[in-house]
């Protein structure tokens, strides 16, 4: 009963936040609602029974998305955006019928799939059966690295591609119009960072290690680490010019190249592509992926925000 009430409230919150995020008058309010929507999704995943997804959503939603949207917004404002955030919604008579129709369609499909008398997913059963052989405790990490490694490899490539494309965008044209950002110059921020930055790094390593046997993994750890970097960028301790060094470039590429090189290795001794040769390779790839994900997310953030250290003080 209480559980149902809780779920109902979460669902209600999700829906009303979504409505507010896309419709409200001011864009800033929309951003707040969207961020809160992401956090509520974390609650929803927790209730659905998927703590890994809750953690990913928390790391991304609580840290990155909000900051990303906020700096993009502030860049729009700094570039002289006076009218458009409040641009009135397009009038479309078809919008409501289409939206209702597609919502209904999705609802019917979803319920149909939920109620259909399917056998349990064979792939999932195989995962649960074979996982102990590899000494892994977390089925999701197992799927991501052992059984369907190519997806994960290409996912890192997607992240890298997004970064390269965003960098290309940020790098051309004149950048005189970058936002004049104000970094909060209060000793409190220093105190906060002094505590939170080391703690985030530690927690990231913890999540990385935990990923092999319980909730956690490279992506969650990378997102947490990225959040630490975002904090540093936001507080002006790291600026965009610092993010072009060779070390950073290697960090971005570490995940993809380590995965590819280790993935190609088995071909030399006649095994299948992407067969991981032992636990050490799992740890190595996970660590490299964490570094890459973190570096890529931080740089994507810096590019979307176009951050520059404000030299006024």
């Amino acid at each position: 009963m209480m559980a149902l009430l809780l779920d109902g409230l979460i669902v209600l919150a999700l829906v009303s936040l979504a409505v507010q995020a896309i419709s409200g008058r001011s864009l800033f309010r929309g951003i707040i609602h969207f961020v809160v929507f992401g956090l509520t999704m974390a609650l929803a995943w927790a209730r659905i029974g998927a703590p890994d997804l809750a953690m990913a959503e928390a790391a991304i939603g609580a840290g990155l998305t909000g900051a990303l949207m906020m700096v993009a917004y502030r860049r729009l404002v700094a570039q002289g955006d006076n009218h458009s955030p409040r641009a009135p919604a397009q009038k479309s008579r078809l919008a409501i019928p289409i939206a209702v129709g597609s919502g209904l369609l999705v609802g019917v499909i979803g319920l149909g799939a939920l109620l259909a008398d399917n056998p349990p997913g064979e792939a999932g059963l195989i995962v649960l059966e074979t996982l102990p052989e590899y000494g892994l405790g977390n089925a999701i990490t197992g799927v991501l690295l052992l059984f369907r490694g190519l997806d994960t490899l290409l996912e890192i490539a997607v992240l890298l591609t997004a970064l390269l494309a965003a960098r290309a965008l940020a790098g051309t044209g004149d950048s005189s119009a970058t936002a004049r950002t104000q970094h909060p110059e209060t000793p409190l921020v220093g105190a906060l960072l002094a505590v939170v930055i080391p703690l985030t790094i530690l927690v990231a390593v913890h999540l990385l290690r935990a990923g092999t046997h319980e909730t956690g993994g490279a992506f969650q750890a990378g997102a947490v680490l990225a959040a630490a970097g975002v904090l540093l960028v936001l507080s002006g301790r790291v600026s965009r010019t610092d993010t072009a060094g060779p070390l950073v470039r290697l960090g971005i590429l570490a995940g993809l190249s380590a995965f590819i090189l280790i993935g190609l290795m088995p071909l030399l001794y006649g095994e299948a592509l992407l067969t991981l040769p032992g636990m050490w390779s799992i740890y190595l790839i996970e660590t490299a992926m964490m570094v890459s994900i973190a570096a890529a997310l931080i740089l994507l953030f810096a590019d979307a925000g176009g951050l520059k250290r404000d030299r006024r003080g």
């Binding site: 669902v11 999700l14 829906v15 979504a18 409505v19 995020a21 896309i22 419709s23 919604a89 397009q90 479309s92 078809l94 919008a95 409501i96 289409i98 939206a99 209702v100 597609s102 919502g103 209904l104 999705v106 609802g107 019917v108 979803g110």
Partner: peptide, 13 residues
């Protein structure tokens, strides 16, 4: 289902 509908609406409007 509701979220999808809302998303579609937002995308159009």
């Amino acid at each position: 289902a509701l979220l999808f509908g809302i998303g579609v609406y937002g995308l159009i409007v």
